[in-house]
Design a protein around this nucleic acid. Sequence first.
DNA 1: CTGATTAGTTAAGCGTGCTAAACTATACCG
DNA 2: CGGTATAGTTTAGCACGCTTAACTAATCAG
Lengths: 154, 154
Amino acid sequence: MTDSVELTQTVRQWMDVFTTRSMHAWTRYVKSTGLSMPQFGILMNLYYRHTCGVSDISERMEVSAAAASQLVDKLVQAGLLERAEDPNDRRAKLLTLSDKGRAMIDSGIETRSNWVDELIADLSPDEFEKVAAALETLSRAAVRLAGQKPERHF
Amino acid sequence: MTDSVELTQTVRQWMDVFTTRSMHAWTRYVKSTGLSMPQFGILMNLYYRHTCGVSDISERMEVSAAAASQLVDKLVQAGLLERAEDPNDRRAKLLTLSDKGRAMIDSGIETRSNWVDELIADLSPDEFEKVAAALETLSRAAVRLAGQKPERHF
DNA sequence: CTGATTAGTTAAGCGTGCTAAACTATACCG
DNA sequence: CGGTATAGTTTAGCACGCTTAACTAATCAG
């Protein structure tokens, strides 16, 4: 039986390689879109949580409401975001990605996928299957962990 | 035999979950240090590539030499970086992390490790072993891939 | 030695993100 | 109804990163 400490080390090391690599790629892609990091962050938020208000953005990004409002406004003007009035609460706005905004994020994810696909293409079918199974296990664990303490900032 | 397209989908999805999560954590940590993103990026660079000059920073971060010089200067003043004259070429500087700078990155990696460890703790011993094996496979593939085209920007 | 290149710094100026503060408008509550 | 809280915007001002351009100093090539 392999040493458990050693295995932990393996997992951490992978995390290290992967995080470094993926952050670099991400940074590069964001720059290529011409958007700033915070702007792109808002688009990402809306990509996953389909709609929300300005104050939600403010909370998630831990910036003031003023900052969120300004950032959102730029994205609206760039045609990446739709900002509609909430019919249930006319103070609030409903923010959603425009098609253009969604396409931009899709394309970013696509870029990321390409790297992963190259990585996978390098594996034997057997390795591939094992890797996929392992990652699914990890995904489930991640979801479980996130569910355990949803009270944490976000 | 499981559908290969489906497996690819699994891998991509994990990538998605993991990237989102790890970038968020990274952003939060950087903010907590009081450093800006680019400043932290320089420290990261030097953490992995033990020493380099100002122009190397400039190239890797794709900013002007002036920008690199200014950022480095702030880090030196903050005591996170050592800037020494290169004895072989007195025009050039040798940049290295100070103990304080190294500690800062170590602590960031530590934070990341904690999350991974929590994730792992949630697995059965059997799952754990399989996951570790799979990630090692992936790591090797990543290294191989990186080695294949080292001419790419970096 | 001389001219050109390379490493790095400094200064001026711009764009951006951020905050605090003041303000508008809607919703909620007694 | 009237007072308070909430959602969002606007403004002024600051800090930061970045660029271009001008500059110093060291190295290299003929």
